[in-house]
């Protein structure tokens, strides 16, 4: 758990990012509060379409139209990024806020050798122009720091000559080139195979302990969360439904959705013949969200109150918040489903 004495380096308060489509307003992110502490990793988990990535893009202020941040605050060391002009914001990007994307295969411009984005990154946030040779030396140093062998020669290679793992290392080097206070990693290892995944994650951990960067890790991989994150926020349909330390999330999940996600993780100690428990139903249509709790249509513990009132995110333990009126005890086997009626 974060110590109460440390201030969060990035604080997202009541963030609302809505998409104004022809069919109506989609509240992709609807009142989200998150805190990233220096040197720590916050995992944001949830199904596809629950608003994880939009939250990350909102923190960078890179939400493309028709999406728009309609409300909230994004505080970087206490400074509200949403109040900055576009020019001021572009000086924060890369320098104070770094980002790694999901697809390393397309994150590098195929037309330039890989030293180019690195040099672009180290030169982008300097007042006086940096000599090309210095930028190149810095690029080679960065490549070495992410474990690229023979960095002098590799710096002049093109992206198509690199494997996915190598490219993601380069993307990390680019994102960390200016030693940002916060790194937003949007599914950084989803496109990579498992061994490379482990290498990339341990690289991120090492770099984090070196630089004290706070990481916001967006993922749907709970195993990855368990190993790499200090705190976890579970999102569902644009809202945070549970937020706790990684131990509490895995040992004492209080929200039925978190519990469902945990049960859906395949385990070696379960009988092989038994079907994997799933969460029945689908994520509700964001254009027609139900009144009350958004998880009600898929919840086994749904009550009348859940259908009328939205449960607030309330403390259920030390540093443990959950948005559920029922807060059932976690059981390894799936409960009989009675929702959706």
């Amino acid at each position: 758990m974060p110590q109460s004495v440390t201030e969060p380096v990035l604080q997202i308060k009541n963030l609302r990012t809505h998409f104004f489509t022809d069919q109506g307003v989609v509240p992709a992110v609807d009142g989200v509060d998150l805190e990233v502490y220096p040197g720590q990793t916050l995992g944001v988990v949830g199904e596809s379409g629950c608003g994880k990535s939009v939250t990350g893009m909102s923190a960078m202020r890179l939400v493309a139209p028709p999406g728009r941040i309609v409300d909230g605050e994004i505080l970087l060391r206490g400074e509200n990024l949403l109040k900055l002009s576009e020019v001021e914001m572009s000086h924060r990007r890369g320098k104070d806020l770094g980002m790694i994307f999901q697809e390393p295969m397309t994150s590098l411009d195929p037309l330039y050798p890989i030293c180019d984005p690195l040099m672009e990154a180290v030169q982008a946030h300097r007042k006086e122009k940096m000599p090309k040779a210095d930028a190149m030396a810095e690029a080679v140093r960065l490549l070495a720091s992410v474990g690229i062998p023979d960095p002098e020669r590799r710096a002049r290679s093109y992206p198509h000559e690199m494997s996915g793992g190598m490219r993601q290392r380069i993307m990390i080097a680019v994102a960390l080139s200016c030693r940002p206070a916060v790194l937003i990693a949007d599914e950084p290892t989803t496109a990579l195979d498992v061994t490379v995944q482990a290498q990339i994650l341990s690289l991120l951990r090492d770099l984090q302990s070196e630089t004290g960067t706070g990481i916001l890790m967006i993922t749907h991989n709970l195993g990855l969360v368990a190993e790499n994150c200090h705190t976890v926020a579970v999102m569902y349909a644009g809202k945070v439904v549970e937020k706790a330390s990684v131990q509490d999330i895995f040992k004492r999940p209080r929200h039925p959705y978190t519990q469902g996600l945990l049960r859906a993780v395949p385990r070696l100690d379960h009988p092989a013949k038994q079907p994997l428990p799933t969460i029945p139903g689908m994520v509700p249509n964001p254009l027609r969200l139900p009144v009350g709790c958004r998880f009600q249509t898929r919840c086994a513990f749904v009550t009348d109150r859940c259908r009328q009132e939205q449960p607030p995110l309330e403390a259920v333990g030390t540093g443990h918040l959950a948005a559920c009126f029922v807060q059932p005890e976690y059981t390894a086997s799936a409960p009989a489903h009675k929702g959706g009626a």
């Binding site: 572009s90 999901q102 411009d109």
Partner: peptide, 27 residues
């Protein structure tokens, strides 16, 4: 514009004119 390397350049704070000149137009 939607390709990730353009997004990545924007996330690095590369100025817009440079993104158009260096990444969009050569593409």
């Amino acid at each position: 514009r939607e390709l990730e390397y353009v997004q990545a350049a924007r996330a690095l704070g590369v100025p817009e004119g440079r993104i158009i000149r260096r990444h969009i137009l050569p593409g």
